[in-house]
Structure formats: structure tokens, C-alpha cells
Computed example of a mutant assay.
Amino acid sequence: MDGLQVVDPDSFYCVLGEAINGPGGYFGWNLAAVGDCLGGGFGAAPPFSLEWQHSDSAGARLVSDHGGNGAFFEVLPEIFMDRGVDALLL
């Protein structure tokens, strides 16, 4: 997954969907939906590894608070880990 293509939460969902399910792939449009997708039935199901290149660039853009759950970027590794995804932040 290329973090340089992530400029906001909407682009994150698009990039994640395409990284997992190919061009035009869906993998959620909010953090709850990403968690649901990681439960299976929407393409890849855990356990799997997700290589996130340029994650620092994406993280700098995903700094907004998301529903009182802390910074968006900080919540993502927790979601991945809780669902059995080994997120490699490169």
C-alpha cells in the first residue's frame, strides 16, 4: 500500500481497498467498516501482512481526531492488530 497516495481518510479507504482487493476494491469507508471487512467476506481475511510504504507521509496527513478515538493514524495499527493483520509500517 502506498502511503504517498493517502491525503485524507477517504483516500486511505480507497488505497486500502485497492491494496487488498485490486483496482476499485472496497475495504470500508469508515474505521468501523474496516474492522468489519477484516472480519472476512470482503476479500482478504486475516491473518495476513499489509506492507504500508511511506506510512510516515500518510500519518502526517491523517492527524485529525476521528470520533473521539484519538488521532486517525494512531487508531489504525490497533484495529489491524486486533483483527490479526501484521501491518508493516515502512
Score class of each variant (00 low, 15 high):
A45P: 06
L89N: 11
L90R: 15
F73I: 10
G68R: 09
F73Q: 06
G3N: 05
F73L: 06
G39L: 02
L89I: 10
F73K: 09
A45W: 04
E18H: 07
L76Q: 05
G22S: 13
G17T: 06
Q5D: 06
P46I: 12
V7D: 09
V6M: 03
Y13W: 05
Y26H: 03
G17E: 05
F12G: 05
L16T: 04
N30P: 11
P46K: 10
G22K: 11
V63G: 12
F12Y: 14
Y13D: 02
P9M: 07
P47C: 08
E51T: 13
L50E: 08
P47N: 05
G70S: 10
A33W: 01
V6S: 04
S57H: 01
S57Q: 10
G17F: 01
E78S: 14
L16D: 03
A33F: 03
E78I: 11
D36H: 02
D56L: 09
G17K: 03
D82E: 04
G24F: 07
G70M: 07
F72L: 11
F27C: 01
P46S: 07
D82W: 00
G40N: 08
R61M: 14
G40E: 05
S11D: 04
A19R: 04
H54N: 13
F80A: 01
Y26A: 03
Y26V: 00
N21A: 14
H54E: 00
G68T: 06
G3D: 05
P47I: 07
D10P: 10
D86K: 14
F12R: 01
G59Q: 07
A19K: 07
P77R: 00
S11L: 02
N21S: 12
E18L: 04
V75L: 15
N30M: 02
H54T: 01
A45F: 10
N69D: 12
Q53A: 14
L76D: 02
S64I: 01
L38H: 03
P47A: 05
E18N: 05
A60W: 09
W29E: 15
L90I: 15
E74K: 12
P46C: 03
D65F: 12
G35E: 07
A58T: 02
M81V: 07
E51Q: 13
D82K: 09
D65L: 08
E18R: 06
L31H: 05
G39D: 02
A44Y: 13
G67C: 08
G39K: 06
G68I: 00
A45V: 14
I79A: 08
M1K: 08
V34W: 00
G28N: 09
G25F: 06
L4P: 00
L31S: 07
G70F: 08
L76I: 05
G35N: 08
V6R: 06
D65M: 05
C14K: 12
E74P: 09
A44I: 08
C37P: 06
A58Q: 01
G67E: 10
A45C: 14
V6N: 03
V6Q: 01
H54F: 11
P47E: 05
D8Q: 08
N30A: 09
V75N: 09
D86Q: 15
G67F: 13
D8A: 06
G40C: 07
N69R: 15
V85H: 00
A71R: 15
I79G: 11
Q5T: 03
G39I: 04
